[in-house]
């Protein structure tokens, strides 16, 4: 990857959904660049296409047209299985409702993405242990999601997202289902990951308070981006 090239390059991106016989345009001629190591918050009214944009960047959905490069790779050119491998290697996911496997313990949930790597069992255990310590849950290893609070579950989910050391972490309303205190903890954690590990973070949020954790705010409205970056914290 070229040093000077932005980590995410989006040019003239279009995405529409077909609903019934109708075509509903969601993203209309979107262009955006995100530098490596940035923490960007994506805001906008409900239905403006924030999740759609995030999903395209993270490679779980495909645009109709336009250029989409992430980490120097044109991901629109990848096949389904190539995309799956690419996601496993480079992207960490955090969801609004945590999306943990209910039958797996916190430890096993965090171990899950490592099963797709070549790491040995011992190496995996070490990585999982470390990551759970970073999110402050090493005393909850053996707990099942149902035995954890929402904030704790989200921290397990963040551990799962970063355990593979991804270049990009995408989070779709990670605090949307949390109370203020838990939300603050989760946001502090994301900020630390961004500061200390240099993980590029793209976070969709409705919450202005949450958006303040980011370094940059991008506003999406009616399928159009307000491109000017807003400095939120120093």
């Amino acid at each position: 990857m070229d040093e000077a090239e932005p980590f995410i390059i989006i040019r003239r991106l279009f995405k529409a959904y077909r609903r019934g016989g109708q075509i509903v345009p969601v993203l209309n001629d979107i262009s955006l660049e995100v530098a490596a190591g940035e923490f960007t918050a994506l805001m906008g009214p409900s239905g403006s296409g924030k999740s759609t944009l995030l999903n395209l960047i993270a490679g779980i959905d495909k645009p109709d047209s336009g250029e989409l490069r992430v980490g120097g790779i044109d991901i629109t050119a990848l096949s389904e299985s190539e995309l799956a491998d690419w996601r496993a290697r480079h992207i960490g996911f955090v969801f609004q409702f945590y999306n943990l496997m209910p039958v797996l313990t916190a430890f096993e949930n965090v171990e899950l993405p490592l099963l797709l790597t070549r790491l040995s069992r011992a190496q995996r255990r070490e990585r999982v242990g470390l990551t759970l310590a970073i999110v402050g849950l090493d005393d909850r290893k053996a707990h099942y999601p149902s035995e954890l609070s929402g904030g704790q579950q989200q921290r397990v989910a963040i551990a799962r997202a970063v355990v593979t050391d991804p270049a990009l972490l995408v989070a779709d309303e990670p605090t949307g289902d949390l109370d203020r205190v838990s939300a603050s903890e989760v946001l502090a954690l994301l900020r630390r990951l961004n500061d200390e590990l240099g993980t590029t973070i793209l976070m969709v949020t409705h919450d202005v308070h949450a958006a303040r954790s980011a370094r940059r705010l991008v506003h999406l409205e009616k399928g159009e981006l307000s491109t000017e970056p807003i400095q939120l914290r120093d």
């Binding site: 993270a58 779980i60 299985s81 799956a84 491998d85 996601r87 496993a88 290697r89 996911f93 969801f95 999306n99 496997m101 209910p102 899950l112 993405p113 797709l116 799962r160």
Partner: peptide, 13 residues
């Protein structure tokens, strides 16, 4: 369904 989608998101085939 959502769990399977999550697994696929993580890169499982």
């Amino acid at each position: 369904t959502a769990e399977y989608a999550t697994l696929k998101t993580l890169g499982f085939r």
